[in-house]
Every structure is written in C-alpha cells, then in structure tokens.
Computed example of a mutant assay.
Amino acid sequence: MTSSEVATAIDWAAAEGWNPGLHDAETFYQTDPSGFYGAEIDGELAGTFSIVKYSDAFAFGGLYILNPKLRGQGFGLQMQQYALNLAGSVNLGIDGVFAMQDRYRQVGFIYAYRNIRYAGTGGGSAPSTLVPIDQVPFDDVVAYDAAHFPAPRSRFLQYFLLQQDATALAAVDKGGMRGYGVIRQCRVGHKIGPLFADSAAVAEDLFNGLAASVPGEEIFLDVPEPNSQAVSLASAHQMVPVFGTARMYTRSIPALPLDEIYGVSTFELG
C-alpha cells in the first residue's frame, strides 16, 4: 500500500474501535514502507494487513481488517494465508483480539500471554529526575529498547519518538538509561507506550511524568498481564481494564524481560 492507503487502513482501525494515534499512519509507514498490504476487489480496497519487518528473523503483523460488508465470504482467510506466506520462516508476532485467538492457533500461532488495556485520567506532577528523550544519545535509546523488544528497531524509534502531539521521557542516572516512555495523542485520549523500566519505581516516575503532560485527559496503558507490578501500577492510578489482546508468535516466544515491560508500544507494530 501507499502511504495514503495506510492512512485509510488507520481510519478503518479507528472505525473498529482500536483508537489509533493521530500520527500512526505516518510513523507506521516510515518504519517499513514495504510492509503494508491491501486486498482489492474490482479495483476497490477491500481489506488490509501489515507485516513490518524489523530484522531477517522477526516481523510484527497488524491492521488485519476486512471491509465489514465482505466478511463471512472467505476473503479474510485468503488475506490471512497470503500474509503467512509472506512471513515465511520469519517469526511473526501479533496482538490478536481475544475472539480471534482460537483461529490464530489453528493456523500455527503460539499463545504467549495477554495484554490488557487500562484506561484512566492524566494529571499530577512530573518528577524532576526525568529528561526529554532527545537529550539522550539516540544510540543509547536504541540499545535500551532492543533489550525489551525482539529486534532492534531504530527506524521505528526515529519517527515514533519525535512525532507531533507526543511526549517522550527518559530516566537516566550515572550508569545510563534506566527506562523510557512515550505518550501520544490518539483519536480518543492519549496512549502511553512503550513504557520500559528497570524497576517499578522507575516505571512509576515515568508514568507520572507522562500522565502529567495531559492533565484531565483520558489516558490508556497496554499492560502485559504477566507483569504483576505493571498491573499494580495501573490499579494504583485508578485505571480500569477496557480491552485486551493475545500476544502470539508463529515460530517461538522471544525471551523478553516482561518484568521490565510496563506498557506495550503499539498493538499494531509490537
């Protein structure tokens, strides 16, 4: 798909209730311009999906949407099989809605864990210990991020961290980075993600700093359920669960430090 067609896919995602970021079309497309696909019927866009490749070994799939008028006719299965063929031997990750989990298992996806979306309200004050992400050497950010994601993703970070209508903060001490987080404006409210931190205390500081940037606004945090401290963080800030996905992979479950992942970057790109 072209960048304008990706914008259409993001609009479809909004219609599905997925609440994309205001600038997701641009930042997602720039991550891998060859990673977005559309299905056409009689010259009209009928469905979309993405397979964004981060390395020769890992990719993430998303934006799997079929025009509601065309569902139940087998077109979705054709798109799914085409996507799996494109992925080939690459380990493909997805965040699938719970209702589709069994279907994904049937075509070979391995269940890893659940991500739960929590909703709350921004506000409070930002800790003075945090710094804007652009004050940290970019290579340091890429290296820290790569320790919390299945592959390095410098191109994604290049566009995602400095997008408009967003705030990105880092926790740094004499030993280097201890965590970082991003909050971006969405069609409804603001999403925090990623939120990676060495400890619950650092995660708390980052959450407070990001929430403080949008006082009184609705905020969302997508929490890996196995991280009990992340669940506790959301609960302590009076956030309530509103949605969820099943994280799944086609080849193997990456060995990630889930206890340091307090917020998923995006359900579409991992």
Rank of each mutant, 00 (worst) to 15 (best):
M1I: 08
S4H: 11
S4I: 15
A13S: 13
A14E: 03
D24N: 05
D24L: 12
A25H: 12
E26L: 03
Y29V: 11
S34N: 06
G35H: 00
G35A: 09
F36T: 12
I41G: 05
E44F: 13
E44H: 11
S50I: 14
S55R: 11
F58H: 10
F60G: 05
Y64G: 08
I65G: 13
I65R: 15
L66F: 11
L77S: 02
Q81H: 06
A87Y: 03
G88S: 01
G88Y: 14
V90K: 10
L92F: 15
I94N: 03
D95G: 03
F98I: 14
A99C: 01
Q101W: 04
Q101I: 07
R103W: 06
F109H: 05
I110P: 07
I110M: 08
Y111L: 07
R117E: 00
A119V: 01
G122R: 00
G122K: 05
A126C: 14
T129L: 15
V131R: 15
V131F: 13
P132Y: 03
V141I: 12
V141S: 12
A143E: 15
D145N: 14
P150C: 05
A151C: 13
P152E: 03
P152H: 08
R153E: 06
R155C: 08
R155W: 04
F156Y: 05
Y159P: 00
Y159N: 01
F160V: 09
L161V: 05
A166D: 06
V172M: 12
K174C: 10
R178Q: 06
R178F: 02
Y180L: 08
V182N: 07
C186D: 11
G189L: 09
I192V: 09
L195C: 11
L195K: 14
A197V: 00
S199P: 04
V202F: 02
A203G: 06
A203V: 02
D205P: 10
D205T: 05
F207D: 05
L210Y: 02
P215Q: 09
E218I: 03
D222I: 00
V223W: 03
P224L: 13
P226T: 10
N227C: 15
S228A: 15
Q229W: 11
Q229D: 14
L233R: 01
A234W: 01
Q238V: 00
P241Y: 01
V242H: 00
T250L: 04
T250R: 07
R251D: 13
S252E: 12
S252W: 15
I261P: 12
G263L: 03
T266M: 02
T266W: 01
L269G: 02
G270H: 11
G270S: 06
